[in-house]
Simulated scan of single mutants.
Amino acid sequence: MKRGLQYFFSKQRMEIFFLKDCVQGFQGEIRIVKPGFFEKYLFPMAMAYQNLPGYRRRLLPDLDEEKLENKIQRRKDIKLFQQKIAGIHLEFVRPPKFSNPSLLKDPIDDKLIIEEVQQRFKLQITKNHMLSMVNKITTYGQFTLQIENFYSPELQDYTTFQITVVTKKPIMKVQKLIDEVATKDEQNKDENKDKQDQKVVKQGKEKEIQK
């Protein structure tokens, strides 16, 4: 029974190594994949081989292990950096202009956006990177800014990514109105309760007088 379970689980995943660099991995890299993916795609395309004892060294005698580790580490760095920049979403709440409610009272400039990105995401961008931002943001809505020629210390290379900026009106007045309505409801409940208590007391006194 135990051997049967081992066979079952071994058929769900298998250990392979890549024979050349490809989208799925680097030459010599050992990975765990599904048997079907290996048998139907990787093996017929001569991209990988099952990692049996001694086969990796036999099929790749000139493999540079240090170079392989550097490639794998760089791929991890790229993935981490992509995760870091994928969710850059800035939100600015600004009151409207009195003469024109569709415009911001205080426009959003590149300096403010740069400060926000540096504080929240620890990215040292500059005005020169924000090539897509020609003018200040003066209206409400969602804006996409293109950051170009940004040098990433993690990647030790230049890259391009986007920042989403959203401008909204403050909701303080709406919240204040909601709070006032809630307070008024509570006051009405208290008043009704007091009236009910007074009515009960009055009825009790009337019964005592009748006795």
Rank of each mutant, 00 (worst) to 15 (best):
D190F: 02
Q83V: 15
R58D: 04
I108V: 13
Q203S: 10
Q162L: 10
Q50K: 10
V174I: 15
F98R: 08
A182T: 11
K173F: 12
I30M: 15
I108R: 00
Q6I: 08
F38G: 01
L103D: 02
L60T: 09
Y151G: 10
Q187L: 12
N70Y: 09
E69S: 06
K136V: 01
N149I: 15
Q187P: 00
E39P: 00
E29Y: 14
Y140E: 05
I163F: 02
Y55D: 11
M14H: 07
N51A: 13
F81L: 15
Q175R: 15
Q187I: 10
E206D: 07
I85G: 11
Q162S: 08
L52S: 07
S10A: 13
K205F: 05
F18L: 15
G36L: 12
N135M: 11
Y41G: 06
I85L: 14
Y7H: 06
N192G: 04
E180T: 14
T160P: 00
K40D: 09
L103V: 01
S102I: 14
E91D: 08
L42C: 04
K176R: 13
N192M: 06
L145I: 13
K20S: 13
R120K: 09
L52A: 14
Q6K: 08
K97C: 15
K2A: 06
D62P: 02
M14W: 05
R31P: 01
Q196R: 11
M47V: 07
F9S: 03
K173R: 15
Q124L: 14
I171H: 06
H89M: 13
E191C: 01
R74G: 03
I209T: 14
T126S: 09
M130D: 08
F81N: 08
N128Y: 05
Q146E: 09
Y7K: 10
K189A: 06
T159F: 06
V174R: 14
K168T: 10
Q196K: 09
R94A: 07
K202M: 11
D179S: 15
K34R: 12
E15P: 10
Q142R: 13
Q73I: 13
I114Y: 01
Y158R: 09
E186H: 01
N135Y: 12
K40N: 14
I108S: 04
L177K: 15
G204Q: 03
T139M: 10
R31F: 03
T126P: 03
Q187C: 07
M172D: 12
V174K: 15
I78F: 13
Q196Y: 04
S152N: 15
D190P: 00
I178F: 11
Q146G: 05
N188P: 00
K76R: 13
L42N: 00
G87D: 09
K2R: 02
I108D: 01
P95A: 07
Q142G: 07
G141I: 13
P107T: 02
K67M: 09
K176N: 12
A48Q: 02
F121C: 01
E154D: 15
L19V: 05
E206A: 13
Q196S: 10
